[in-house]
Design a protein around this nucleic acid. Sequence first.
DNA 1: TCTAACCCTCACATTGATGTGAATGTCAAG
DNA 2: CTTGACATTCACATCAATGTGAGGGTTAGA
Lengths: 158, 158
Amino acid sequence: MRIGELSERTGTPRRMLRYYEEQGLLVPGRSANGYREYDERCVDRVLQIRGLLDSGLPTRVIKQVLPCLNQPRAIHVAGATPETIALLERERDRMTQRIECLVRSRDAISGYVEAVRRAGGPGTGEAAGTPALHAPAALHAPPAVPEPAPAYDLAVSA
Amino acid sequence: MRIGELSERTGTPRRMLRYYEEQGLLVPGRSANGYREYDERCVDRVLQIRGLLDSGLPTRVIKQVLPCLNQPRAIHVAGATPETIALLERERDRMTQRIECLVRSRDAISGYVEAVRRAGGPGTGEAAGTPALHAPAALHAPPAVPEPAPAYDLAVSA
DNA sequence: TCTAACCCTCACATTGATGTGAATGTCAAG
DNA sequence: CTTGACATTCACATCAATGTGAGGGTTAGA
């Protein structure tokens, strides 16, 4: 397929597909007229790139990481330098940290949303899809006070 | 404490602490001479900010999300507008996606590293030992240079 | 008093991921 | 042949997160 189709199917601007190529993340073939020619698997690959990008990994890292994510590892095993392995391990650990941070934060947000929902009534009732994680702590609800703001706790209403 | 100490204790450049303040993520007090005065909790808060930043969240979002993390959420419950709640839910879902993507990728990397370790060990790209897994395609082993990675390979994506 | 180590603000530079547009080529359909 | 949709490259613009430095206060210690 050409760039337009890939763009539509992945929801990714053409500009970005060219950029990923420039960064070595995606290397399409070229047809006689110079048009980029993408193969079916590129759809998933692009999705994956975007996911990682969106998770905070720079293209430089994604480039190293990508070849390992997509199966036939045996192919790549031979070409792995110790530096690459080391980098991957570092990156894997960083990812673990990100994951932990994200999980903590997400759960906290879930708890908060839950609390608000229970407290402020179902004005914003949105039913399905909420997996109901752990229950939050106790809550008392004083009137809204967007005032003093010490060095912490900025007001939500801002 | 003042900015220097906070900087040291969090490993964050002073410049960044001022930037976070400019972005409304951290609002220190001021002592008479105009110096920023941070309180103890700022240490954790800064660490949290950096974690989220590093996980790909923009300051704009972190600003909304922060008040729900840690502390007495009840304080904020009253001031939460439906828009804020909606934003938090969207953001929570995005975080879940990031988490899933990161977990998949990390696990894939782990698997890869494992495979390499089992195979030849990280000597200078040598195929002395083992094809280990199923190898459907040819196995070419260029010296040490990371190859251009042809446009194939499918995925683990969302 | 001088100096060093802090702090301040202001402002421009840089990098990575993007947006956007200009100038042009290719190709199918009217 | 012309038009319109698509493609190309090139290049500059933007935005967020940082780096860096100029120019100048404050404060503690020699």
